[in-house]
Write a protein that binds this DNA or RNA. Sequence first.
RNA 1: GCCAGAGUAGCUCAGUGGUAGAGCAGAGGACUCAUAAGCCUUUGGUCGCCGGUUCAAUCCCGGCCUCUGGCACCA
Length: 513
Amino acid sequence: MKPFYLTTAIDYVNGAPHLGHAYEKVLTDVIARFRRMMGDEVYFLTGVDEHGQKVQMAAQQLGIPPQQYVDETSAAFRALLPQLSISNDDFIRTTEPRHKSVVSRLLQQLFDKGEIYQAEYKGFYSTRQEQFLQEKDRQPDGTWPELFGDVTEITESNYFFKLAGYQAWLVDFLTTHEDFIFPRYRQKQVLEFLKDPLNDLCISRPRERLEWGIPLPFDPNYVTYVWFDALVNYYSAVADTGQWPADIHVIGKDILVPPHAVYWPIMLHALGLPLPKSLLVHGWWSVNGVKMSKSTGNFIVPADYTGEFGVDALRYFLIREMNVGQDSDFTRAQFLVRYNSELANNFGNLVNRTLNMTTRFGAGLIPAAGPAEDVEKELQALWDKTRTEVIPLCEGFQFHTALDRTFAFITATNAYIEKRAPWKLGKSTAEADQALLRMSLATMAEALRLGAALLQAVMPTTTEKINAVLGYTPGASWRDELVWGSRLAGKKVAEALVLFPRPQPADKAPAKP
RNA sequence: GCCAGAGUAGCUCAGUGGUAGAGCAGAGGACUCAUAAGCCUUUGGUCGCCGGUUCAAUCCCGGCCUCUGGCACCA
């Protein structure tokens, strides 16, 4: 069976990774892990885009070869993956031979089919910025902004891909495939965009202007520019393995129109290749209400948070806080609220008190439960409800709500413990009380195991740790693991585990004398 | 301007054609296994505005207002 194939966008390596890069990886990883848990075989691709003008210029300024430059900068992006517990199966760089050869092959194929032609391109060119300008770049008074320096109208010969001819086909495709893009309103945006006529797509740059790219196979005086390089990574990574088409391309909203929703489907269609099944378009993070920007320094470095609070805490926050497709704001205050009240107090503390009570009142062994009474039945009923709600929510990318429901179950488990008050039962020697004590210890441990299992896609390390302290090794089928049972009876638990230590408030004066 | 999304308790958000919900924050309480955590109770809202459909609308329809985002190459 063909694996479930999903991708992230590839990152352009002219800067350091920030929260936005991290989010896309985490989101895709959560989907990948969830699909694996659901029994799919998964192929998860991510990577970097290493060609282009900005890279060439940056390398030039440093006086080093571009390859050396991208070797260094892409290392930071690669290093981000283990730092975020990303379970990718492959990592592609657009400078790799496996990629370049596929790009070459596809270009030649289109050229042979007459889908690519050469033509004169006339436009306003900024020598200082080494780029063609658009009318919208003009200032209101008609002049060009200072940053472009001298602007001259020049004519340049380039290669073009016959994009415009496929416009009607694309409109028809999108109209008949309403679920191609998630969220749906994004698809409407694309159709809106397609109400205006498309131009053919310029796919080349003359070598004297841009050298750092993949040469056109039919004209070595040019390299291909951006889209026939970057987009093709999704295909080149699996061209020889029969895994195409992708099931999901996860991308940011900035690169939906036109590249992923217009260029890419048309490119594939022109090549006679199947289209990806869907595009998942996520929103952007702002920081303290302000758009993230490298120039203003308003951005979050993921390592700052994974270092201080742990990988799972950051993953949890990103997935809990953002409604996939919408934008969200990142503030340290909001992060701390979720970390303290949800992860540390509610969840982490439940783990610790469960271990402690099992150790103190059950000699460290999880007992077998007797027949469930009403209090237990109530919790088990909530569990069944939670489980049956969470899976469809995850299938529909509503991870934030899925986490909300899961944590409601965790809260209910804390409440259950209060009802049974094992610390009181532990002081009684009456057999009825002892039976209830065994039942309550077994129930809280089982609830914890189940809650942790439901969090596995988002917080894999945490789930693993909890299973470990419960002395438990889960079976192969995740869905079977979600059934309330007595798997834990007789397991030896660890004495304590503090998963999410409360941070020391930095603004508080050092305590008592 | 065009298009889209959002407007529900102080904050962040769920939600349904039939007298409004959660979490956090605030207040009070009982307890003590636990990361001074957890639990219970509680204060708090004309569900953006104006019309319409309906026995009944926060939820359906129309209009308006406000905020955010997109409109050809920054996740």
